[in-house]
Protein backbone atom coordinates (compact mmCIF):
# COMPACT_ATOMS: atom_id res chain seq x y z
CA UNK A 1 0.00 0.00 0.00
CA UNK A 2 2.72 2.44 0.99
CA UNK A 3 4.59 1.46 -2.18
CA UNK A 4 1.58 2.56 -4.23
CA UNK A 5 1.47 5.99 -2.60
CA UNK A 6 5.24 6.38 -2.98
CA UNK A 7 4.91 5.36 -6.63
CA UNK A 8 2.22 7.96 -7.27
CA UNK A 9 4.30 10.67 -5.58
CA UNK A 10 7.42 9.78 -7.61
CA UNK A 11 5.46 9.58 -10.85
CA UNK A 12 3.79 12.96 -10.33
CA UNK A 13 7.13 14.62 -9.49
CA UNK A 14 8.63 13.05 -12.62
CA UNK A 15 5.78 14.17 -14.87
CA UNK A 16 5.96 17.73 -13.52
CA UNK A 17 9.69 17.89 -14.23
CA UNK A 18 9.17 16.48 -17.74
CA UNK A 19 6.76 19.35 -18.33
CA UNK A 20 9.20 21.91 -16.87
CA UNK A 21 11.99 20.55 -19.06
CA UNK A 22 9.87 20.98 -22.17
CA UNK A 23 8.90 24.48 -21.03
CA UNK A 24 12.60 25.24 -20.54
CA UNK A 25 13.38 24.15 -24.09
CA UNK A 26 10.56 26.33 -25.29
CA UNK A 27 11.55 29.49 -23.41
CA UNK A 28 15.36 29.60 -23.19
CA UNK A 29 17.19 31.99 -25.55
CA UNK A 30 19.99 29.85 -27.06
CA UNK A 31 21.27 26.32 -27.63
CA UNK A 32 23.38 25.90 -24.52
CA UNK A 33 20.79 27.16 -22.07
CA UNK A 34 18.19 24.98 -23.78
CA UNK A 35 20.45 21.99 -23.31
CA UNK A 36 20.88 22.90 -19.64
CA UNK A 37 17.16 23.01 -18.96
CA UNK A 38 16.35 20.09 -21.22
CA UNK A 39 18.97 17.67 -19.95
CA UNK A 40 18.56 18.19 -16.23
CA UNK A 41 14.81 18.44 -16.01
CA UNK A 42 14.00 15.64 -18.45
CA UNK A 43 16.57 13.32 -16.84
CA UNK A 44 15.01 13.68 -13.40
CA UNK A 45 11.57 13.57 -14.98
CA UNK A 46 12.23 10.31 -16.80
CA UNK A 47 13.92 8.77 -13.74
CA UNK A 48 10.98 9.74 -11.52
CA UNK A 49 8.31 8.52 -13.92
CA UNK A 50 10.00 5.23 -14.74
CA UNK A 51 10.95 4.34 -11.16
CA UNK A 52 7.50 5.45 -9.98
CA UNK A 53 5.85 2.99 -12.38
CA UNK A 54 8.31 0.37 -11.11
CA UNK A 55 7.06 0.97 -7.56
CA UNK A 56 3.42 0.90 -8.63
CA UNK A 57 3.97 -2.49 -10.27
CA UNK A 58 6.66 -4.15 -8.09
CA UNK A 59 7.31 -7.12 -10.40
CA UNK A 60 8.51 -4.70 -13.08
CA UNK A 61 10.90 -2.94 -10.71
CA UNK A 62 14.21 -4.44 -11.87
CA UNK A 63 13.68 -3.69 -15.53
CA UNK A 64 12.57 -0.13 -14.79
CA UNK A 65 15.69 0.25 -12.64
CA UNK A 66 17.84 -0.78 -15.62
CA UNK A 67 16.09 1.72 -17.89
CA UNK A 68 16.60 4.43 -15.25
CA UNK A 69 20.33 3.69 -14.88
CA UNK A 70 20.70 3.72 -18.64
CA UNK A 71 19.02 7.12 -18.86
CA UNK A 72 21.13 8.57 -16.06
CA UNK A 73 24.28 7.59 -17.99
CA UNK A 74 23.20 8.27 -21.58
CA UNK A 75 21.43 11.64 -21.26
CA UNK A 76 24.47 13.66 -20.10
CA UNK A 77 26.59 12.04 -22.80
CA UNK A 78 24.23 12.94 -25.62
CA UNK A 79 23.84 16.50 -24.35
CA UNK A 80 27.63 16.82 -24.14
CA UNK A 81 27.98 15.61 -27.73
CA UNK A 82 25.31 18.07 -28.88
CA UNK A 83 26.94 20.99 -27.03
CA UNK A 84 30.35 20.21 -28.49
CA UNK A 85 28.99 19.69 -31.97
CA UNK A 86 27.01 22.92 -32.04
CA UNK A 87 29.96 24.89 -30.66
CA UNK A 88 32.21 23.48 -33.37
CA UNK A 89 29.91 24.48 -36.21
CA UNK A 90 30.02 28.05 -34.94
CA UNK A 91 27.22 28.67 -32.48
CA UNK A 92 28.45 31.04 -29.81
CA UNK A 93 26.77 31.01 -26.39
CA UNK A 94 24.22 33.74 -25.69
CA UNK A 95 25.48 36.41 -23.28
CA UNK A 96 23.35 39.11 -21.70
CA UNK A 97 26.52 40.81 -20.49
CA UNK A 98 28.59 42.10 -23.45
CA UNK A 99 31.98 41.14 -21.97
CA UNK A 100 30.91 37.70 -20.72
CA UNK A 101 33.52 34.98 -20.30
CA UNK A 102 34.11 32.27 -22.93
CA UNK A 103 37.36 30.39 -22.34
CA UNK A 104 36.52 27.62 -24.80
CA UNK A 105 37.06 29.99 -27.74
CA UNK A 106 40.80 29.99 -26.91
CA UNK A 107 41.07 26.27 -27.70
CA UNK A 108 42.08 25.42 -31.30
CA UNK A 109 38.80 24.23 -32.80
CA UNK A 110 39.82 21.96 -35.67
CA UNK A 111 41.93 19.15 -34.24
CA UNK A 112 41.35 15.40 -34.44
CA UNK A 113 37.90 14.34 -35.64
CA UNK A 114 38.87 13.65 -39.26
Amino acid sequence: MILTYLGYVLTSIGVIFLFLGALGIFRMPDIFTRLQAGTKATTLGALGTILGVGLLQPEWFWKTLIIAIFFAISNPISSHALARGSYKIGHKPYMNDPNGIDTYSEVPQNEGDE
Binding site: I25, T42, G45, F71, S86
Partner: peptide, 29 residues
Protein backbone atom coordinates in the same frame (compact mmCIF):
# COMPACT_ATOMS: atom_id res chain seq x y z
CA UNK B 1 3.73 19.31 -27.82
CA UNK B 2 5.91 22.09 -26.33
CA UNK B 3 9.09 20.28 -27.36
CA UNK B 4 7.64 19.62 -30.82
CA UNK B 5 6.81 23.32 -31.26
CA UNK B 6 10.44 24.13 -30.49
CA UNK B 7 11.43 21.49 -33.04
CA UNK B 8 9.31 23.17 -35.70
CA UNK B 9 10.26 26.76 -34.82
CA UNK B 10 13.91 26.14 -33.91
CA UNK B 11 16.01 28.65 -35.83
CA UNK B 12 18.93 26.26 -36.44
CA UNK B 13 19.50 22.54 -36.93
CA UNK B 14 21.01 22.22 -33.44
CA UNK B 15 17.79 23.46 -31.84
CA UNK B 16 15.82 20.88 -33.75
CA UNK B 17 18.13 18.06 -32.66
CA UNK B 18 17.92 19.20 -29.03
CA UNK B 19 14.14 19.21 -29.25
CA UNK B 20 14.24 15.73 -30.80
CA UNK B 21 16.50 14.42 -28.04
CA UNK B 22 14.15 15.67 -25.35
CA UNK B 23 11.12 14.47 -27.27
CA UNK B 24 12.52 10.91 -27.25
CA UNK B 25 13.11 11.06 -23.50
CA UNK B 26 9.57 12.31 -22.92
CA UNK B 27 8.17 9.63 -25.24
CA UNK B 28 10.00 6.87 -23.35
CA UNK B 29 8.48 8.00 -20.06
Amino acid sequence: ILAAIRGVLGPTASDRIIALDNLTTITTA
